[in-house]
């Protein structure tokens, strides 16, 4: 009797735990796709998914901070394009390295290119913050405006064409296509995600992010400089988008203005599937990490089983609806 009660309680605890629900969804997806296409269950597929995950999880992590603080950042996709184009231009035309540069001489330029890319992203984030804090424009409109501006600038900068530069494709390829699906780039991304996750959940920076999204008036009354913190959050989101920009550059070997097209929606979808609330105050880093993984598992799976890609949108829409419904139910039960 008590044993079974304990079991029930345990199961209930598990189910109420967002991360385990998401892992369950991931497992079910994997089983379904494998049943339909056995080649899906492979290191190569894992590598495909992780490679996609690498760019979008970075902007989704930034988006997690933004969403928890009660805002939204639509400029992240456009920043991928702009920062990729600017850093490619920098490496190609200022450092004078091209795609013909041998891979082993690409690391220095890539590192500098990464700094440029992150700086470009952080700068756009700063403009977002100024529009929100000083011009008092709501985040949706402010970041929509910078999204358009960043896109326009990247087209002007590149004449709309990809700019190629130095690269080492080994950094983006699997370490071992038979055994190890991770790439150097994905490992670096995972480390960045882990560190930002610690900051979200363990540090004052994260606490203030939750506090502002939960009740901005209370945060201000407690002596928090809300505007300054909002600035930091948008700069962080921009900087992470810039990092995603150099990641995509490394993936393509070139910077292209359209290389982030539509990614803001992927990021928001991942964050919401991960259990964050667009009303602010709620969200977990694990949720975002798994939400992004689910997104690309669906994408890979649908391509592998040969279903029209439009179905990805349908499946993602269902997942979002389920995530939001789960949240509403939890709120009703008083759990948050």
């Amino acid at each position: 009797m008590t044993d079974s009660n304990q079991l029930v309680a345990k199961v209930r605890g598990l189910v109420s735990n967002q991360a385990s629900i998401l892992l369950g969804v991931l497992a079910v997806l994997t089983i379904v796709f494998t049943a339909l296409e056995p080649k899906f269950f492979s290191i190569a597929t894992a590598n495909n998914i992780l490679t996609d995950w690498g760019s979008v999880v970075l902007i989704a992590v930034g988006q997690t901070f933004v969403v928890i603080s009660g805002g939204i950042d639509l400029s992240v996709g456009a920043i991928i394009g702009l920062s990729g184009v600017v850093s490619a231009y920098f490496m190609a035309n200022i450092l004078g390295k091209t795609s013909a540069t041998p891979a082993d001489q690409a690391y220095g330029p890539l590192l500098l290119g990464a700094l440029v890319s992150v700086a470009v992203g952080a700068f756009v984030g700063l403009i977002n913050a100024v529009l929100i804090n000083k011009a008092r424009i709501v985040p949706f409109i402010a970041t929509l405006a910078t999204m358009g501006a960043a896109l326009g600038l990247s087209v002007i900068f590149s004449s709309g064409m990809p700019i190629s530069g130095p690269n080492d494709f080994n950094l983006i390829g699997a370490l071992d296509y038979n055994w190890n699906p991770f790439s150097v780039a994905v490992i670096i991304v995972a480390l960045v995600v882990a560190v930002t996750g610690l900051f979200l959940h363990k540090s004052r920076f994260g606490l203030y992010t939750y506090a502002i999204g939960s009740n901005a008036f209370a945060a201000r009354a407690a002596g928090i400089n809300v505007e300054r913190h909002i600035t930091k959050i948008y700069v962080l989101s921009g900087a992470l988008s810039g990092l995603a920009g150099i990641y995509v550059y490394m993936r393509l070997g070139s910077g292209s203005p359209s290389s982030g097209t539509g990614r803001e929606l992927d990021a928001i979808a991942a964050v919401v599937i991960g259990g964050a609330s667009l009303m602010g105050g709620i969200g977990r880093m694990w949720g975002t990490v798994l939400g992004t993984l689910i997104l690309f598992t669906v994408q890979s799976g649908l391509i592998m089983i040969g279903v029209a890609p439009d179905w990805k949108k349908v499946v993602v829409a269902i997942l979002i609806a389920a995530a939001v419904a789960a949240q509403t139910l939890q709120n009703k039960n008083g759990r948050r």
Binding site: A44, T45, D52, R251, S258, S259, F296, I303
Partner: peptide, 23 residues
């Protein structure tokens, strides 16, 4: 064997090819 869409994004085009190469 297959067609897929990039939605104007070169990274998505790369994703499609990645998965085809596996399949």
């Amino acid at each position: 064997k297959d067609v897929a869409y990039s939605e104007s994004n070169p990274e998505k085009a790369a994703t499609n090819v990645n998965n085809w190469l596996t399949k």
